[in-house]
Design a binder for these strands. Structure first.
Lengths: 146, 146
DNA sequence: ATCAGTGCAAACGATTTGCACCTCG
DNA sequence: CGAGGTGCAAATCGTTTGCACTGAT
C-alpha cells in the first residue's frame, strides 16, 4: 500500500507529473475505471493542480501503446474502462438488477478446450461476461414477485 | 426467403411503414447491424421515402423494449449493434488482423458447469468473444515474420 | 535546446430529446 | 378522433484534435 519504490516506466517516455498521477490512481484502483473516473481521482489526488481531461485520454492512449494499461469495453453497456496490466485477466458476473460487477475467482476456460469449436481460427485471447442476479437482488425479487 | 406471411407484432404497437421497413431489414440481415447501417439499408429498401435517423433509434429502442430485437455491444471496439431475437445466441471469434467476425458453430458453455465458479450469483446469460487470427491472416503473418 | 507532453477550446460521431405535425387503429 | 409515432433541428455525451505554450531530458 505505502509501496513507494520507483516505478519502472518504459524507455523514451517522459515521466511527467500528470503521468505519475494517472499511474498512481491506476495502481491504487481495485477495479477497471473509465477515463472520467480516472480524471476525477487524479484531480482529488493532485488537489489544486490544473488538469485537462484530454490529457488523461492521451496519457491512457500512450500507456496502452506501451502495454502499461489495457483498455476494455464492458459488454453490458459499452462503458470503456482502463486498468493496469498486471498480467492475467479477470471475468465479471454482472447483476442485471443493481449492476454490481463481481469478479470471478477464476477463468472458466482454464478447464475447456476451444480447439474444435473454432476450426482454423487461432485463439489468443477471449472475453467473457456473465449476467444474472446477485444474492441480494435475487432475494429481493423472490420477495416481491412470488 | 420469400416468406411474406404476416408478422406477429406485439400488441399495442402501431405497425407503421417505418417500423415495417426496419423490421424487414433486420429480418434479412445475416449478422448484427449498427443503427446507422440499418438506417442506410432502410433508405435503400424504401427508396424515395423520407426518413430520420432518430426514428430508427426510437424504433430500435421500442423493439428492444418489447423483446423483438436485442442490442449488443461488441467488446473489441464498442460498436453497438442490433439483431432480431431469434432465440438462442451466437458467439464470435474476432480476427485481430482483419477484424473479420466468425460465428462459432456452438456455445462452448454447453459443455461447462458454471455453478461453482460464481458462488451466490445466479447466472441467466453470458457473453463471450474470442480473439486471435483467422487462417488467412495467420498464414500472412507467418510469411512476413519468420 | 529540443521535442514530447500539456491545456484549452473547438470538432467530432453516436445517440437522445423537444416540439409541432402526421397517421394508424 | 386521439394517442402514439415521426421528422427535424438542436442538445448531449464521451472522445479526439489543432494549436500555441511548457517542461523533462
Amino acid at each position: 500500500m505505502n509501496d513507494k519504490r520507483e516505478i519502472r516506466y518504459p524507455e523514451g517516455m517522459k515521466w511527467t507529473r500528470q503521468r505519475k498521477n494517472v499511474y498512481e490512481v491506476l495502481q491504487e484502483a481495485t477495479e477497471p475505471l473509465s477515463a472520467v473516473q480516472i480524471y476525477r481521482l487524479v484531480e482529488e489526488l493532485a488537489e489544486g493542480e490544473e488538469y485537462a481531461l484530454s490529457t488523461v485520454y492521451r496519457i491512457l492512449a500512450a500507456f496502452e501503446e506501451r502495454g502499461l494499461v489495457s483498455k476494455d469495453t464492458w459488454m453490458g453497456d459499452g462503458t470503456v474502462v482502463y486498468e493496469l496490466n498486471r498480467g492475467g485477466h479477470t471475468h465479471y458476473a454482472v447483476c442485471l438488477e443493481c449492476h454490481k460487477r463481481i469478479a470471478l475467482p477464476s477463468c472458466p476456460f482454464a478447464h475447456i478446450r476451444l480447439g474444435r469449436e473454432t476450426g482454423d481460427f487461432t485463439v489468443t485471447g477471449h472475453k467473457l461476461e456473465l449476467y444474472g442476479y446477485c444474492r441480494e437482488c435475487k432475494a429481493e425479487k423472490e420477495r416481491t414477485e412470488p
